[in-house]
Design a protein around this nucleic acid. Structure first.
Lengths: 205, 205, 205, 205
DNA sequence: TATGAATGAGCTTTCATTCAT
DNA sequence: AATGAATGAAAGCTCATTCAT
């Protein structure tokens, strides 16, 4: 009698198509027509499932943030020590990826630029970054504790590592050869370890 | 009798106007009308001095790269030791800036996104990044040499620091409070020093 | 076993929903989606019960015309003298109404505008107006006869009163405070009475 | 050297074109393309001279209101007595018009409908109506004074006449033969005179 | 050099209508 | 009878670019 809803599946398809088109053409040039074509849908359908183009973008941001979380949890499953967890995190973020990874990274760079100029995008982007910062900060603190170091600097260190990763995304997407994304994982890890070792010992109080 | 040519001055004004509009609205929304208004010029004049809108953007990229060079040289003038020079470099790139700095930083982030999708922009962007990498690499090698360390890792370290700075630009522009630009200078410097100290000693060969 | 046909009930619901949406948004902005939502029905159902959106509009016009007739007959039931009947008519048309009345009045104004541009709507609208004119004309003639006046001018007077009422609908819907609908009843009645009194006496021929 | 602005002339052309298209097709169907074609201009030019389609509509409303004022003043120039002035006013509003008049009348009817649903249009429409009411009220008061009548009812009478005229516009535009516009002038005048004569005498206070 | 009007392609969005279920 | 997804043709609006002055 009644037709069954398929909105969620369609929304996912559309979001994925936006990610794909944005990666190479940017947000402005990711026209509704282009996204529809990429998804193999009629253009009008996009506005049936989404109120506006911007809503697709916002959905993409949260979708990518969620994907990052899931990927970390997946890799972290096998980890045991705090150091393994940190490693898993960096791997999940900047580990050597397949073809899809490059697309995600480029899309994320475009999102970053949109976050600068669109308040609605900035909001979700900021939330995603804050969550990352929180998580990374905690992972670092655990590493520091394990080695009996003070955890005072963990948040600053997390911010530095986060910046390094975001910058690696940018450079990997916009330049060729100068800095591969995967390469950033090593740098970040090295930086983390040097900083952890350099942190003062926590004295028993 | 003859009109005094003011093309260079006009071009500079227009480039500056693009930078200003891009910082808040991005490249696509930086319309010729908006740029003209910001520069206090008639819209038609922009296409008299530039062949296309993209040409203004390309000019802005080289203009900003040159500005960065000049700023470093200016600050570096007082420097004596390799460490002072490195410090000067980081200061020039991510040192505490005034209001204008935030605009430049945001514009640079937008340029980074455009470099991903426009080949012409990518070319000049890449050249600018390569030059930076070269310079920073050299500065780091000098520091390493001064401390009798091997210089093998200087280029990788430079890449990591560059990524950190670019990422700091991004986060500073798109989030509030999470990561101020100026803050990146300290992180980068700390990272540099830790890495230098951790580098193996150069043995006399 | 057999499904109970409810087409008529559904049609009425849909017509009522169009009236409601049109009152505030006009005909063009009364989208099928909006009408369906107002009626609490699925959008697709509207085209099952009506061939087109315009058909709903045409049905609304006749529906409102019928409603007007019924309302008059209802109020007129208690009337005895020609003057009472005239009074009843004006009361039915522009008498103080409840909330629903404002909606009906506004919808009628929108219908009037559509009648100007859509031939199909104009046809039924014109028929409705002609019927009104006929009725009012007759009511006035009766009043004139009762007072032994010539009935020559009754049709012109009816037209003037009709115009006044339509204009009152318009002003009541588009302005606030300047002219309440209910207020028009008094003006029309006064005009009618003055005109009746001023009409020449019918001489026995 | 510089091109001289012609915005005012162009705006007038565009406004006139909207009036023309609206008269037969209504506001929604008066597309930018249609208006441009009617005016013999490129579609894009309309948005160069007007920020939005609605702004053209609002301009048309004030333009028509101004035109009405000028027309009255022109006709009133020859008038001497208060009665002549009243006559001139009604003539200016509903007097037999040429072809252009029918267009203006139809356009005004469409504007009335838009005023119901668009706040911005309602505002200027309301202002125009209020001005008319004020003027007509004053004219009627003068007539009453001349005949030593109390002026208490002048505003109510003005409202009734205004409604009658607006209704005549509607009926004249949407029906054929039932009520010509020009015919309303006589009805209104007759109503005015009957009311004036029926008004109580002003006693010397 | 400089102005600002003009052009037209292309954008996002809306929507009546159709149709598979 | 009923559902809600799907379609595609417009709609209003934007904008780089051109051009007459």
């Amino acid at each position: 009698m009644s037709r069954k809803p398929n909105t969620e599946a369609r929304r996912a398809e559309i979001i994925r198509a936006l990610q794909s088109v944005m990666a190479t053409h940017g947000y402005e040039k990711a026209t509704i027509q282009a996204i529809a074509k990429e998804a193999g849908l009629a253009p009008g359908l996009l506005h049936y499932h989404f109120k506006s183009k911007q809503e697709i973008l916002v959905s993409l941001v949260t979708s990518l943030a969620d994907y990052g979380q899931r990927r970390f949890e997946q890799i972290a499953g096998k980890a045991e020590s705090p150091m393994d967890l940190l490693n898993a995190y960096l791997e999940a973020r900047v580990g050597l990826g397949d073809g899809a990874a490059a697309e995600i990274v480029a899309a994320w760079v475009m999102i970053g630029a949109e976050a600068v100029r669109q308040a609605e995008v900035r909001e979700v982007y900021q939330r995603a970054i804050a969550t990352e910062l929180e998580l990374l900060s905690e992972l670092l603190a655990n590493c520091l504790r394990e080695r009996q170091r003070v955890t005072t600097g963990s948040r600053d260190l997390a911010a530095a590592l986060l910046a390094m990763m975001e910058g690696a995304y940018q450079l990997a997407s916009a330049t060729s050869g100068i800095m591969p994304v995967g390469y950033a994982a090593q740098s970040a890890l090295r930086h983390a370890m040097l900083s952890i070792d350099a942190a003062p010992l926590a004295t028993a109080s």
